[in-house]
Design a protein around this nucleic acid. Structure first.
Lengths: 155, 155
DNA sequence: AACTGATAGTAAGTCTATCTTACTTATAGG
DNA sequence: CCTATAAGTAAGATAGACTTACTATCAGTT
């Protein structure tokens, strides 16, 4: 009986939560007729914060590979929510920013995101919820640091 | 400026953590030469708990669709870690259980999982960590309940 | 016994979110 | 001016799901 990986350990739990949240979000987005996935919304949210921003900096911020950001931007540009503008000072580089069409959609996405988080929170008291978020932030920091270390070793 | 989806909100945070944990796990598993993904490990962990178990009950337990469990079991059976046994009392049904070969691999997977969780935890104190897990459990319960409600409505 | 409806599992095909490897073009520093 | 590095992309792969439609079987009702 000692081969017991705990099927309710924190890794699986967080994996489940992420999947369930994503499912909820996607379903509501589909019902509302907006064609944006959670990961795309995440990209939009970061662009909204830092625009205009170069693609590779955006990728770093999101913690994904450059090629992955290219794909996201392709889709979002195709949907008319983002635009690429050449950087006049470096002809290799491009700036990414939101189009005017993005704003109303983002506002609806925000509402949906709020609703999903409300459902996730349920009856959890404010204090515990805030601590949950704070711990999650620390955990992400820990994992990002580990990955960074491995990357540096590789060089 | 009011189109601000918070790019550090709890949804995105949990999404990031899940992705980073998965990446860490996969890399270590690859280095160790075991060919098992985190989601497959999750299936194995549940089978270890409830074996022998019918496929659709396993799917319910994992919170995934029946077709998805079929695919996982196909792969794990192909790798020699699981086996399907016909249920003599219901010729439609099959029981799933671990093979003997699965146990040594699961023990290595357990070690890797522990190491990843240790990295994720970093210097977070035991009390806070335990509360984090407890809250995560409640959150998953909330989200599962919402989904269950929607499913019942659909009938 | 025969009909009808539900259930267990699967085949086929689709989708998102990633990755890696290899390439093009451009810049920047000796 | 050469070389190393950087920004972005093309191509292809992978995991982890989903849906819809099908087959085989079971169980309850005429």
């Amino acid at each position: 009986m000692k081969s017991g990986i705990d099927p309710e350990n924190i890794s699986f739990l967080l994996f489940d939560i992420s999947r369930l949240m994503r499912g909820e979000f996607e379903q509501r987005v589909a019902e509302a007729g907006l064609g944006v996935t959670p990961a795309e919304a995440r990209v939009l949210a970061h662009v909204a914060r830092c625009q205009p921003i170069r693609q590779h900096l955006l990728a770093d911020r999101l913690g994904i590979a450059r090629m992955s950001i290219t794909t996201f931007i392709d889709r979002l540009e195709g949907a008319g929510l983002l635009e690429r503008v050449a950087d006049p000072e470096d002809r290799r580089a491009k700036f990414v920013s939101l189009t005017d069409d993005a704003f109303p959609i983002m506002s609806k996405l925000e509402d949906i995101g709020d609703a999903v988080r409300l459902a996730a929170r349920g009856a959890i008291p404010a204090e515990e919820w805030e601590l949950f978020r704070k711990t999650a932030l620390a955990v992400r920091g820990n994992l990002a640091a580990v990955r960074q270390k491995v990357k540096e070793m590789a060089q």
